[in-house]
């Protein structure tokens, strides 16, 4: 019925990505209200490290998800008018692009901040250079603005998914097939 549907791994990755991104939004707003770090005030250590770990993991998940998505053609979408197909393609392209930009800018900002990044407390990732305040602020700004844009695109993506669910036109079915 669905033609070349995505496999279960791709479907699970899609939802894992969704819950991870929502957690990153919720936790980042909360953790940025924690006291600034010092020798005594260490409240930010765990949340920031976790934030970076999940963010970097998202990049890996995204590559796997992208591969699965490219191989799976949604024939229901192919039957839609041309402008709808273009809009769907644009939505996914912008979504993927913003996730990549958000993750990379976050990593770069952290790299120039002088703080170490230990990937899941196992692998120490290299810093790109010595601490550089100007570049840290630049990448931090890029990180913040790509985050806001990402949130807006997620809202559009979710709205479109709900619209197709209410229409029951079969467009989103394949991402809900366990």
């Amino acid at each position: 019925m669905q033609g070349n549907s995505p496999d279960k791994t791709t479907i699970l990755l899609h939802w894992l990505l969704a819950v991870s991104i929502l957690f990153l939004f919720a936790s980042s707003w909360w953790m940025l209200a924690l006291p600034l770090p010092s020798d005594e005030f260490t409240y930010r250590v765990l949340p920031f490290q976790l934030h970076k770990n999940i963010g970097i993991s998202l990049l890996v998940l995204l590559v796997i998800l992208f591969t699965g998505s490219v191989n799976a053609k949604n024939e229901k979408v192919l039957k839609q008018p041309g402008w709808v197909q273009k809009l769907a393609l644009l939505d996914h392209f912008v979504l993927y692009l913003l996730i990549v930009l958000t993750c990379l800018s976050g990593y770069m900002s952290s790299s120039y901040s002088g703080w170490d990044t230990s990937f899941w407390w196992l692998i120490d990732l290299p810093a790109w250079s010595e601490e550089n305040e100007a570049l840290n602020i630049l990448f931090s700004d890029i990180h913040m603005w790509t985050c806001w844009l990402l949130l807006a695109v997620i809202a559009v993506h979710t709205g479109a998914a709900l619209y197709h669910a209410f229409l029951n036109d079969g467009i989103i079915e394949r991402m809900f097939r366990l």
Partner: peptide, 23 residues
């Protein structure tokens, strides 16, 4: 046939609640 929209909403709230509780 087709999708059950209420299930879609359950998934959406599940995602939000998982993020909220983890935070």
């Amino acid at each position: 046939s087709g999708i059950n929209w209420a299930g879609v909403i359950v998934v959406l709230f599940g995602l939000l609640f998982a993020a909220s509780q983890s935070n």
